[in-house]
């Protein structure tokens, strides 16, 4: 029964899940600048949370376009509940989602393992850094500081949006709810006649 593009169920599930993360994104803001004064770019270690909607939604729905949609929807959700960063989050959401999507596309949407989602997290990190480069003059930081900044962001992204996202979806799979999301296969139809 596969139709072209995402079905309403796919879109709606992606958006709803993404909006849940949108709230997390919003809550993450105050947390992010709360840990900021603690030390030198420790905050960058938790930056990866802002990439998680894309990877989780992709692992759940497993279809093209979902990662981008999820990240944009999560950013919109964050924006609508009143993000301190305002419209900026929409740009970041779009570019981060796009890079994650490109990573999944590069593997032809055939791989759903921890390595691929970690790569997608790396993609999103690069996206955010590019925007920061233009917006935040990060190249004007002292070199040791910049290295720390970028390194911490990559590490945090892989841990949170890669490994943690993967284990979260694994835990969700154990509950059985993901059964509803996966497309049926020919074998499923064949087993009707057994």
């Amino acid at each position: 029964m596969q139709t072209k593009g995402l079905k309403l169920t796919d879109v709606l599930t992606t958006v709803v899940v993404a909006i849940v993360f949108g709230i997390v994104y919003k809550v993450w803001g105050p947390l992010y600048y709360a840990v900021k004064p603690l030390g030198l770019h420790l905050d960058q270690l938790i930056y990866g949370m802002w990439f998680i909607a894309a990877t989780v939604a992709y692992l759940l729905i497993r279809k093209p376009g979902v990662a981008l949609l999820a990240e944009v929807a999560a950013a919109s959700g964050e924006f609508l509940v009143g993000s301190e960063w305002g419209l900026e989050v929409l740009f970041y959401g779009f570019v981060q989602g796009l890079l994650a999507e490109l990573v999944f596309a590069a593997f032809r949407y055939k791989r759903f393992d921890v390595a691929v989602v970690s790569l997608a997290a790396v993609g999103s990190t690069i996206a955010s850094l590019v925007l920061d480069f233009y917006k935040g003059y990060i190249d004007q930081l002292a070199w040791w500081n910049l290295t720390l900044f970028i390194g911490a962001r990559f590490v945090g992204a892989i841990i949170i949006a890669g490994v943690f996202a993967y284990s979260l979806v694994k835990a969700l799979e154990a509950t059985g709810v993901t059964q509803l999301l996966r497309p049926t296969t020919k074998e499923d139809y064949d087993s009707l006649d057994k």
Binding site: M1, T9, L180, D188, Y189
Partner: peptide
């Protein structure tokens, strides 16, 4: 079923 929910049936 099967229009909105894809469950194998015949």
């Amino acid at each position: 079923i099967p229009r909105s929910i894809d469950v194998p049936m015949k």
